[in-house]
Computed example of a mutant assay.
Amino acid sequence: MSEQTGTGGLNEYIQHHLQQYAIDFGGGTFHVDTWVVSLFCGLVFIGWFGFYARKATSGVPSKGQAFVEMAMEFVDNQVKDNFHGDRSSITPLAITIFMWVVLMNGMDLLPLDTPGVAIQAVAGADVAAHTFFRWVPTADLNTTAAMSVVVFFLILYHSLKAKGGFGFGKELLTSPFAAENPVTRAVLMPANLGLNIIEYCVKPVSLAMRLFGNMYGGELVFMLIAGLLGGGLLMFVPGVIFNLAWAIFHILIVLLQAFIFMILSVVYIAGAYESH
């Protein structure tokens, strides 16, 4: 959620909050805010689930243990429905993706101006006005692209594991257009290779862009609603109502986008074990 506190108008407010806290690193730009919040969310997940895993009892579970067990069972059932093999490494991957993305997406429900208010209280308004910090790691394409690249390499790993180097290479060259005639098969090899490369590359791109687009759009809506909150007393009440309504709806987006990213990752990995 957001609350407009800037004095330069909605345009300047949005531009300010779309800026990353970035530093030059290794010839490129490193987004410190994305890394810090992503790490924080990851540690929260590890600590949260690790705590209840160690404290798990066979009797009547506590509410916290019950929630963790429900989340694990839900994800495991999804994996079971989509991956018909050894799930010992796939289910932990899926629950990590789901909960980590939920936590990162959920940062969008926190007030955008919290970092600025905190910095202003400590260092003054001038410093706060020139300090950038974005709450939502998944609204940064670097985050979603990095996660998607990891999934891409996992797809390649499982493809090689299931079919071997020769089998995987043969599939790239001989499907989807198969031919019995050796000459025809050789002619079709470049087309098959090109189509397979496109298919493999589209998977991480679609994963990254879908999650990024939805979270970036949701963030922008909160910023636009902030314009109502900063538009005087007449617009304050409608702004609060719109902000609350969008926040409630956005909870569904937070959960749905995490689910989609998780389930597509599992489906893509499961597809590595199937032949064209």
Rank of each mutant, 00 (worst) to 15 (best):
I225H: 01
S89G: 03
V267W: 05
V266C: 00
L18D: 14
K203A: 14
F133D: 04
F212Y: 09
V44S: 00
M262K: 03
H250M: 06
S206F: 15
K170I: 07
V36E: 02
Q4M: 12
F168D: 01
A258F: 09
L228K: 08
V127T: 03
E219P: 02
L234W: 08
A178T: 05
F177S: 00
H158S: 11
K55Q: 14
Y21S: 05
S38G: 12
D140A: 08
A66M: 12
M209D: 06
V237L: 12
D140M: 11
V79A: 01
M235D: 11
Q65S: 11
E199D: 14
G116M: 06
A53G: 13
I248A: 04
V136M: 02
D33H: 12
M70E: 11
M209R: 06
G167D: 00
G232M: 14
G26D: 14
D76G: 01
A145I: 15
F40A: 10
L220E: 11
L255K: 00
I119R: 02
M99D: 07
I248C: 01
N181E: 10
I198R: 03
A179P: 05
T114S: 03
V187C: 05
N192M: 10
D24P: 09
F153Q: 07
G6I: 13
N196H: 06
A128Q: 04
V60W: 15
S89E: 03
V237D: 07
V187S: 05
K170W: 04
V151A: 07
D33K: 07
Y200L: 14
G271A: 04
Y273R: 00
V187P: 08
Q257L: 09
E171A: 11
N105Y: 01
N82P: 01
V187I: 12
K161W: 13
Y216S: 04
K63C: 15
G8R: 09
F25E: 06
N214E: 13
T144F: 08
V68P: 05
N105H: 03
A186P: 01
A162V: 04
H130I: 10
F25G: 00
G218F: 15
F153R: 04
F153W: 14
V75D: 06
F212L: 03
N142Q: 14
